[in-house]
Simulated scan of single mutants.
Amino acid sequence: MTLWQLQMLAAVADSGSLQGAASQLHRTQSAISMALKKLEDEAGFALFDPSGYRLQLTPRGEQFLRQAQEVIKQQARLESLTEKLQQGAEAQLRIAYDHTCDPVLLIDALRSLQVAFPATELLLLGESQMRTLRRLREGEVDVGLCPWLPVFRQYGDFETRFVEPFTLAVVISSELAAQTGGVPTTREALLDLPMLIPQNMDVGISLDAILRLPGQQRIRVNDSHTQRELLLAGLGWGVIPQQLVARSLAEGQLVQLSIPGFLNQAQLEVHLVRAANRIAGPAAAHLWERL
């Protein structure tokens, strides 16, 4: 059976007559009648009951039509995909984002992509420890969203676009502070407390080297959301994206540390990043402009 036969079946069911289907499909009534008979012969059962004023689907015909309509819809989607691919749209757009960034930043741009490029599949990849940059450098993703420092340019040939500010804060749970004699006010006081520290960044950045706090117990995690839960549980202090703990700070579950001569806050930026040596497809270019 052919796609045209299925379209003819749907037209007859919709109009309730051979003449109506012939008018819809711009064919003669005899051509529709012959095509319907051939389809019923191939199916092996009657699709319509001709005894009434209008042609009515038989129970088997109703079930057959439901599946036929799905085939017709899939064919229409395939035509749309073919048209978009002919225009050069990517079959798949691969987007990586660092877990320290709020994925809500992508929502409006993704919604716009769905409308502008309905045939492009969107693949979202959450990453930790700046692995987004490695994926971009190695061509595993098309666009990335991650914290950005100018020094990262030595890691690869990147183009970037500013999205929003990004702040790292030093925090401790109010419960742990109470258990250990109050909120630490000196660098030395931190040495007696466990430190929740991200694993070394994929771009070679070591927080150990930056913070220079030898001796204390460390708990290393590769996910900022897990780090937040450990901080809330009072398992140590740590440096974490402020937007991830803003609510906990406002509610008093966490306290931000302010120690003279020590890292209290670090001001960074969230950037959209892509490899400069690759030509962006239209969907990737659309995301770049929208975000």
Rank of each mutant, 00 (worst) to 15 (best):
D102S: 11
V151N: 11
I205T: 07
R218L: 12
L113F: 09
T120M: 11
L106I: 03
L231E: 07
R220T: 11
L136P: 10
L145Q: 05
V115Y: 10
D108Q: 15
L145Y: 02
L232E: 00
T160H: 09
A96W: 05
A169E: 01
R131M: 09
R212M: 14
V115N: 14
T167D: 12
L168A: 08
L231P: 00
L190N: 05
E188H: 14
P184R: 00
D208T: 00
I219N: 00
R153L: 11
C101N: 03
Q199A: 15
E140C: 01
A96C: 09
G236V: 00
L145K: 00
C146W: 06
V141M: 01
P147V: 00
Y97K: 02
L213D: 06
L168H: 07
Q199V: 13
V171R: 03
R94P: 02
V115K: 15
V143T: 02
T226L: 14
V143D: 00
G236P: 00
L149K: 13
Q216C: 04
D157H: 13
L145D: 04
Y97W: 10
V183F: 04
L106E: 06
F166G: 03
D98N: 06
V183W: 06
G181T: 11
A169Y: 02
T180L: 07
P214S: 10
G204W: 15
G182R: 04
E159R: 12
I107P: 04
L207C: 07
A109Q: 07
C146K: 00
E121R: 13
Q217H: 10
H225S: 12
G182P: 09
M195T: 00
A119F: 12
C146E: 03
N222P: 11
V203P: 08
L191Y: 14
Y155N: 10
D98G: 01
T132L: 04
P103H: 13
D157F: 09
I219Q: 03
P198Q: 08
V143P: 04
L211P: 00
I205C: 03
I95A: 01
G126I: 09
I197Y: 05
R137W: 05
L207V: 04
G144C: 05
P194E: 04
L124G: 01
I95E: 04
S112A: 14
Q154N: 11
